[in-house]
């Protein structure tokens, strides 16, 4: 079910190239140390690792959502020129991201329709919303009635379907799925993987799927990579230090 058939051109630049990434949240204990990873155009790479190994942080770096302390990120051959709001819009939207927990990844005030249409509105393409949202909602299996509801009125599975549609609405060249199915049952998992693979087969987009389920990622992706083998620390210490350095602060966990 992978899109390996779309023979990636040898001369095409890779969809994603991470080189020498060192990143983290606290100065003294980086979550990632000197990590390099390349995802070729049209390729599906699964990144495997236990909780807390920094694989989610790597996914956030790849989507330009977390600024690394060292290293470079190339998207479709272009070096990343900024992170978060400072990243050029075209680079930011090159990667479509699906997060682990649909509840926290969805603005609770938006209807599912508005949620899926939001990237179009944000990039000045609101006129396309009705048409594209309708088509994507069909693809992920959300009916018109569900689209009028807000996140607290739908199940986790339904909300994650909307989040996948949102990630696809700008036709990204790279999909970053961070534990996309960890909260979902087997049938919804298979349904969403099918949606992603249909999209990739149609557009030749690349995929970086992060997770801890080896069976799933080996079935889903062209190849899998162990996060531990990338230069991520083998085991992050969970000591009281995290508490001392950030009294009210951000959680130390990278996952």
């Amino acid at each position: 079910m992978s899109a390996a058939g779309n023979t990636p051109g040898a001369c095409d630049p890779p969809a994603l190239r991470l080189s020498g990434i060192t990143a983290g949240y606290e100065r003294r204990s980086p979550v990632l140390r000197d990590v390099s990873l390349t995802v070729r155009k049209g390729e599906a790479v699964g990144l495997l690792g236990p909780s807390g190994c920094g694989k989610s942080t790597l996914a956030r770096v790849a989507a330009l959502l977390h600024r690394p302390w060292a290293g470079t990120v190339h998207l479709a051959g272009q070096p990343a020129r900024g992170w978060r709001y400072r990243a050029p819009r075209a680079q930011r939207t090159f990667a479509g991201v699906v997060f682990q927990q649909p509840r926290t990844a969805a603005d609770p005030r938006l209807t599912l329709h508005a949620l899926i249409a939001e990237p179009l509105r944000a990039t000045g393409r609101a006129v396309e919303a009705t048409d594209r949202v309708g088509r994507l909602a069909d693809a992920v299996g959300l009916g018109p009635e569900l689209l009028t509801r807000r996140p607290h009125e739908v199940s986790d599975g339904q909300l994650q379907r909307a989040c996948v549609a949102r990630a696809l609405v700008l036709d990204p060249g790279l999909l970053v799925c961070d534990e996309m199915t960890a909260m979902l049952d087997a049938s919804t998992t298979a349904a969403l993987v099918t949606v992603v693979e249909d999209y990739r087969a149609r557009t030749g987009a690349a995929l970086l799927a992060v997770g801890h389920d080896r069976t799933l990622l080996e079935r889903w992706c062209d190849r899998t990579v162990e996060a531990a083998g990338l230069g991520a620390p083998d085991e992050r210490s969970r000591t009281p230090r995290a508490r001392e350095t950030t009294p009210a602060g951000t959680p130390a966990s990278g996952t």
Binding site: M1, G141, G157, Q158, D185, A186, S187, T188, T189, A190, A191, V193, T194, D213, T215, L216, E218, R219, W220
Partner: peptide, 18 residues
């Protein structure tokens, strides 16, 4: 049966619909 067949170690096909 559909739930089991949706597992990645089995057919990995979803049950249609919701």
């Amino acid at each position: 049966r559909g739930l089991l067949e949706a597992l990645p170690e089995r057919a990995f096909t979803p049950i249609p619909g919701m």
